[in-house]
Amino acid sequence: MLSIRNLEASYGRIQALHGVDIDVEAGEIVTLIGANGAGKTTLLMTLCGKPRAGKGSITFEGEDITRLPTYQIVRRGIAHAPEGRRIFPRMSVLENLQMGAVTVDPKYFADDLDRVLTLFPRLKERIGQRGGTLSGGEQQMLAIGRALMSRPRLLLLDEPSLGLAPLVVRQIFDIIRDINRQQKVTVFLVEQNAFHALKLAHRAYVMVNGRIAMSGSGAELLADAGVRAAYLEGGHEAPPPRPAPEAAP
């Protein structure tokens, strides 16, 4: 469905991605884990066309989308719930969801709204409230719900667990699984919370310094000693290929 080949991207003179290859098949949950600054968010942003890919190609459902402007990429059926949620703080929950549906024929709006509110009952309770007054978890739900309103076939999630309490993280990940199973939406998840992400994912990639260091099924990587040491247990053993100075959350 999505295939990334030899992708390079840079911010000015600093290169952030060095030839990344990733494949996402329809119906999968694929996760990309890695430490701070490994290039995970850059990869998602490059998928969306900002920054532009310096080299390599991004193909979505057989179409080359490497050079398309961001708003065109979204219209192809890729929705992005960006890092830090980025909901519209002064607009109500309902208006936020409405903004998610700008690319969609208005005749689907009522049904889609119903679907999203069933998925996130909390949003239904808060429907008239300003986005900025929601709690962090609710804001994350709103960001995902807003992305779903564009009827995506591929959902890009950037650190949905960021800054959330462990209980809320569990809840969000359960919902992501539901979205994948029930709504038949392919999910590409970028996470620092490796444990939850690997448990959820069918397949996973590990990114270190702008390169893919490892890949495999979620269960495989979860069992891998190096991954455990680097991303799950606080880095006691020498992990491959480079130690990431980060404790598991």
Binding site: V74, H80, R90, M99, S150
Partner: peptide
């Protein structure tokens, strides 16, 4: 609505297809 959303967050607007 797109104007108001643009005032709130331009990056989010792009990612929603505006």
């Amino acid at each position: 609505r797109a104007w108001e959303a643009l005032r709130e967050d331009e990056i989010a607007c792009r990612s929603l297809g505006i």
